[in-house]
Design a protein around this nucleic acid. Structure first.
Length: 894
RNA sequence: AGGCACGUAGCUCAGGGGGAGAGCGCUACCUUGACGCGGUAGAAGUCGGCGGUUCGAAACCGCCCGUGCCUACCA
């Protein structure tokens, strides 16, 4: 017998890289456009090239890999399309910071040189995250890896831009946008984070032009008063009605501005009079448009006061605020200052306070695109899972606003628009134009703005497949099967892919959208570097093994919104991996001399243990398959966990040990080896999507011919293996053994002491069934002699366990702990009585009898009968014990 | 301000209209020839509170309390 040499514990570090390389070298994850198999595809949410693997990536990609491996094993032609995102602002910031360390800045370098530097940086560090994904086991088709700025994708971006522009779905316009003075770029609404902050609410008095009156306005940003071009009041407001049409003298600058009536003004808030600063507030901007007001920009791109700011020119906006407040105070026109909490917008990248600013930007007209995207989800061409997110999706889509897509940075897709040097005509085309369509001029300057990073991301599901070319990839793999992502980018990304996919492909980009939770720390906080609460997935993988980590993520994936990762859980699943390892070690040792079976064995001829485990395995196949089909990762994980540990290891392996060790029945031994082999192999396959590495490591040692478990068939449910009788008989065995063990525990009997056990089973068939599996009971409960008795033969001095269909007695002689036994029996009687009470209450309720479904009533009746029998037996037993106790006492035994 | 989640054993969390579950932790015992990263047994919860629907609610509905998140142009 050649012994397999396996170490006593599973060491993940030693095998993970080896198998990943093996898979990749042999191209097991490669998709094939010529395949006759049905296609199954997922596009990865492309991580930023600046990124390094965090918990969110780990969860997201683990779930994708589980689905991908599952579907691949089920026989689909699988494509998992990988790639990375150029991450405009983020990447530019990183490189700028690096330059700053060398005392350089991008302006000194110039645009071209700077972009060159970014590409260099990308070559050097951009692959970090993809290597980390490989560590995680992600079975992407790396031969197709794409980057949002590579040539093909850039062409797709230009194509889309040009087509949208010519359909008037992209326009350039003056608008108030979110400006980050530090990044010096416009941001979309989504890129602004709102946080509640403490501030002051200033009450400022503006003098009326006609005579000595004053009107009070209220603001949190006094410095913007320099750009005020009106004061607005609600036309329904009696206090101010007469003032509408009057003029106000703007303090400090002494500009005349009108008092206007506008219904948007809230009469309840502050004084009910609103200072209108169209160039620095969205709301004011809209009022100004409606009333044809002037728009005066007083804050510049760098956050400093501009030339319209009069005496404050050149000051930082917050310094200016202090100064102006001081000036008002001095003049006695600062009427009040109160504490106030309100939301302030911050740049999502650098946390600088956003300055709403009037600016000329490029926009996508989103409403026409959104209609189709709403329709596609309404009629379920794309299904959002879990469906609660549909509501959020609709809410946003229905209230969508035009999308500001231009960014004043350098790293990104430069907008394909050119301005004629002679007449300023805008020409939008994929390549630089030859001559101006209006004046025939031949000199052009290209638009300097680049596109929002999410613009190229929106095209990802088809641009990565080769669009605008008509490729085989598009034909086979579009629409993709599912998109798996966190809810934090539902609007940023999912919604926009829906719009673009429908617009340019004429079909939804994915059939399903599965939204998973975000990973938070143990206090439920979002993990972030600044909070210092990050758990580094790479360290976790190193310490506990990738498989244990992946399994933990899958097991946690149920929660709606949050996953608070606990290291104890990961440790628990490391133990699970080790358990699998050792069960396999045991199995392999005992399979060493297995040479296969001569001919197929009839399932119904097999031993109880064999039929039972095959039947249970089969059920587990069904559970795991159904769970994964519906993205219920935690349920799949739990089903396979329970099967392997608590059925395969706890019971099956223990049950078959005598068979494997014994030499007498070679036929049963061979069949059992066969079943062991089959179930172990099947369990590994079921587990493979969750734990790819350990399953491969073990599977390769099994006597089989396959190249890799990764491309082996996923087990299929087999109706022929369903065996209710085996399940029922094993239940009897397990309860009997449990009863004996319980007595052992309660009576404090040493585990290795062999017992004489008496079974009283008078019900029909129970005794016969138990007779057939007595060997299991004898072995696992460490029984010396197992005898069946009738109720007349009950010994007095026995510890007993009363089950619903039998009694287990262990004669104890003098060793019987009378008091302990009395206590235990009383406790059980109490429990039974309580259950009886509940059953009685139900059965004596006429309405229950008449209204509850028949099977429920029947169930309660049966239960009551069983309880009554059990109660009777327990009382009998108690009586016996008390009798002994009484006689012992009367003999003066105490 | 609106909206959406969540509140179940000491901890982390499943489940979900008819007998309260798992893992970890805890207690006791066990080096039984795969595994002490193990085994066996055990203790432990008025399923956030109050109402309602129902024959029956931990689950469905309403309100309240607590927590978290998302959306929003109240200066």
């Amino acid at each position: 017998m050649e012994a397999q040499v396996l170490s006593k514990t599973y060491e993940p570090g030693a095998v993970e890289d080896k198998w990943y390389e093996y898979w990749m070298e042999r191209g097991f994850s490669r998709a094939d456009t010529d395949s006759t198999k049905a296609p199954y595809s997922i596009v990865i949410p492309p991580p930023n090239i600046t990124g390094s693997l965090h918990m969110g990536h780990a969860l997201n990609n683990t779930l994708q890999d589980i689905v991908i491996r599952f579907q691949r094993m089920r026989g689909f032609n699988v494509l998992w399309m990988p790639g990375t995102d150029h991450a405009g602002i983020a990447t530019q910031n990183v490189v700028e910071r690096k330059l700053a360390e060398q005392g350089l800045d991008r302006h000194g370098l110039g645009r071209e040189k700077f972009i060159e530097r970014v590409w260099q940086w990308k070559e050097q560090y951009g692959g970090v995250i993809t290597n980390q994904l490989k560590k995680l086991g992600a079975s992407c088709d790396w031969s197709r890896e794409r980057f949002t700025m590579d040539e093909g994708l850039s062409e797709a971006v230009r194509e889309v831009f040009v087509r949208l522009y010519h359909e008037d779905l992209i326009y350039k316009g003056n608008y108030i946008i979110n400006w980050c003075p530090r990044c010096r770029t416009a941001l979309s609404d989504l890129e602004v984070e709102h946080d509640e902050e403490s501030a002051k609410l200033y009450h400022l008095a503006y003098p009326l032009k006609s005579g000595g009156g004053l009107i009070t306005v209220v603001t949190t940003r006094p410095e913007t008063m320099l750009g005020d071009t009106a004061v607005a009041v609600n036309p329904k407001d009696d206090r101010y009605l007469v003032l509408i049409g009057e003029k106000v003298i703007l303090p400090i600058l002494y500009r005349e501005i009108p008092i206007i009536g506008d219904e948007h003004v809230d009469m309840e808030f502050g004084s009910g009079a609103l200072k209108v600063t169209p160039a620095h507030d969205l709301n004011d901007f809209e009022i100004a448009l409606a009333h044809g007001l002037e728009m005066v920009k007083v804050i510049d791109e760098d956050g400093k006061m501009g030339k319209e700011a009069g005496p404050y020119q050149g000051m930082d906006r917050f310094e200016c605020r202090k100064k102006i407040v001081g000036d008002f105070e001095r003049d006695g026109t600062l009427l009040k200052m109160e504490d106030y909490r309100h939301n302030v917008g911050h740049c999502y990248r650098c946390k600088t306070i956003i300055e709403p600013t009037l600016s000329k930007q490029w926009f996508v007209r989103t409403k026409p695109l959104a209609e189709a995207a709403i329709q596609a989800v309404t009629d379920r061409r794309t299904k959002i899972i879990p469906s609660v997110w549909e509501k959020t999706y609709f809410e946003w889509m229905n209230n969508i606003r035009d999308w500001c897509i231009s960014r004043q940075i350098w790293w990104g897709h430069r907008i394909p628009a050119w301005y004629c040097e002679k007449c300023d005509e805008i020409i939008v085309s994929k390549e630089e134009p030859h001559s101006c369509s209006r004046c025939g001029g031949r000199e052009f300057r290209q638009e300097t703005d680049v596109l929002d990073t999410w613009f190229s991301s929106a095209l990802w599901p088809f641009s990565t497949l080769g669009w605008p070319k008509e490729t085989e990839e598009l034909r086979v793999f579009y629409p993709t099967s599912v998109l798996i992502t966190g809810f934090d980018i539902l609007f940023f990304w999912v919604a926009r892919m829906m719009m673009m996919g429908l617009k340019f492909m004429g079909d939804v980009p994915f059939r399903h959208v599965y939204i998973h939770a975000l990973v938070r720390d143990i206090q439920g906080r979002k993990m972030s570097k600044s909070r210092g609460n990050v758990i580094d997935p790479l360290l976790v993988m190193k310490e506990y093994g990738t498989d244990a980590f992946r399994f933990t993520l899958a097991a946690f994936a149920a929660q709606g919104r949050d996953i608070c990762l606990s290291e104890e859980r990961i440790e628990g699943y490391r133990h699970f991996a080790n358990k699998i390892w050792n069960a396999s070690r045991f199995s392999l040792t005992n399979l060493a001399d297995f040479r296969g079976i001569a001919h197929e064995v009839d399932f119904h001829e097999m031993s109880l243990a064999n039929r039972w485990i095959l039947s249970r395995f089969n059920e587990t196949v069904r559970e795991v398959t159904e769970a994964l089909e519906e993205y219920r990762f935690n349920e799949g994980a739990q089903a396979i966990y329970h099967f392997i540990w608590h059925e395969f290891c706890d019971w099956f392996l223990e049950l078959i040990k005598p068979v494997l060790y014994g030499k007498d029945d070679q036929q049963e031994r061979t069949v059992t080896q066969y079943v062991l082999m089959r179930v172990l192999d099947g369990a590994l396959r079921l587990l493979h999507p969750f734990m790819p590495f350990i399953t491969e490591e073990i599977w390769q040692r099994l006597p089989q011919e396959g190249k890799s478990i990764m491309i082996a068939d996923f087990p299929r449910y087999d109706g022929g293996l369903r065996d209710e009788e085996a399940i029922g008989d094993m239940d009897l065995v397990m309860r009997t053994i449990g009863g004996i063990r319980n007595i052992r525990g309660e009576m404090d009997i040493a585990p290795n002491k062999r017992l004489d056990v008496l079974l009283l089973a008078e019900e029909d068939g129970i005794r016969e069934r138990l007779e057939q599996c007595r060997k299991y009971v004898i072995h696992l409960a460490r029984v010396d002699r197992l005898s069946f008795i009738t109720s007349g033969q009950k010994p007095r001095d026995a510890a007993r366990a009363v089950l619903r269909d039998m009694e287990i007695l262990v004669p104890m002689g003098k060793g019987l702990d009378l008091e302990g036994e009395v206590r235990r029996l009383k406790k059980e009687i109490h429990k039974v009585e309580k259950d009886l009470e509940i059953a009685d209450r139900k059965l004596s309720n006429d309405e229950f009898i008449s209204k509850a479904p028949e099977e429920v009533v029947e169930k309660v009746k049966l239960k009551k009968e069983a309880l009554l029998i059990r109660e009777k037996k327990l009382r009998e037993s108690l009586g016996k014990i008390l009798e002994i106790q009484g006689s012992t006492l009367s003999k003066g035994g105490r």
